[in-house]
Amino acid sequence: MTRKTTGPSTVENDMTPMIDVTFQLITFFMFVLNFSEAEQDERIQLPASQLAKPAEGVLETPITMQLTATGGVLYAGEIVPVDQITTPLRREREIIVAAGKDPKQATVIVRADGRASTGDVQRVIRACQEEGFERFALRAHYEPE
């Protein structure tokens, strides 16, 4: 008895819906990708507040001062003691002045750990004031009650 042999048939799946969904997913992940992580550091645990306003737009010439719980300032990936912060601040100021901007208009973002001493935070603020900075943004985690 001979059986009629059928050749290897290729089953064609319609790939279009899968590709649609995959592109949607890629678009989603691209949008939620946060590029501002660079200025965040896991060594600092910000205090929480229910009134901390998310920054409106991009701050003009921001300078981020990150203060750790042990009282050091994270600057350019290194921990600088609070009493030596003047040198990098002066450099920041020179960069701002060279760019034709006013240090008074620059915002110093203070990202201090919740366990840091208030006195150290004040010394950092004082050092910034002595270099001519006036605007400060005390950063906190937004936490609705």
């Binding site: 939620v32 992580e37 910000l46 920054a55 605007r135 400060f136 943004a137 937004y142």
Partner: peptide, 15 residues
């Protein structure tokens, strides 16, 4: 690379 970060906010102080 998705990293869910708690939103941060500022207290603007002029000093």
């Amino acid at each position: 690379t998705l990293n869910i970060i708690a939103p941060e906010g500022d207290f603007d102080v002029r000093m």
